[in-house]
């Protein structure tokens, strides 16, 4: 039986969000510096990303993407639903500069979160940026991923900005 026919195992929603919340607060206690916590989250995401990408490829059976637009689509409409259970939106796709924004409207990770004023600089879900960077790096796509806006900081919507650092010599994904 191929993997795509198999049902994805589900875990309890609260335990997932609480675990992540605990990781972030522990990091805040340990490092006492919001910028450093953002960094650490990104690093953690990176090491998750380089492992997750194979799972994604084996599961979806996707082949190489033909261009960056394809890559963006794969992330927003295939990877996000698979791992987080909701699709992301793509905005401001720029063909020339090879950059776009991922819009996260229904992020389960921030469901119960209220950011206290002293942690204003924190990007709570910065781990996602690391994951995207890590998994694309495994496919020889060098990108920069960072949070631009975050609902928790009072912005209208959460937005992750992704830009390609260099043109890949071979194909994309």
């Amino acid at each position: 039986m191929s993997r795509s026919q198999k049902k994805i195992d589900k875990i309890n929603f609260e335990i997932f969000t609480l675990t992540y919340g605990e990781i972030v607060t522990t990091l805040l206690k340990d490092y006492e510096d919001v910028e450093e916590v953002n960094n650490q989250l990104d690093k953690m995401g990176y090491s998750m990303g380089i492992r997750m990408v194979d799972e994604f490829l084996a599961f979806t059976g996707l082949n190489k993407c033909s261009d960056f637009r394809d890559t963006a689509d794969a992330i927003a409409n295939k990877a996000f639903p698979l791992f987080l259970g909701f699709p992301a939106g793509i905005q401001n796709f720029d063909e020339k500069k090879k950059e776009f924004s991922l819009v996260l409207d229904q992020n389960p990770l921030i469901e119960f979160v209220e950011l206290p004023p002293k942690y204003k600089g924190l990007f709570y879900c910065n781990i996602l940026c690391g994951i995207i960077r890590g998994s694309l790096e495994m496919l020889q796509i060098d990108v920069e991923a960072k949070y631009k806006k975050c609902v928790l900081r009072g912005d209208e919507r959460s937005e992750i900005f992704i830009s390609l650092k260099q043109d890949p010599k071979k194909g994309d994904k």
Binding site: D54, L57, N63, K64, L139
Partner: peptide, 8 residues
């Protein structure tokens, strides 16, 4: 032989 996209 199966070559995965990640190179394994």
């Amino acid at each position: 032989c199966l070559l995965t996209v990640t190179g394994t």
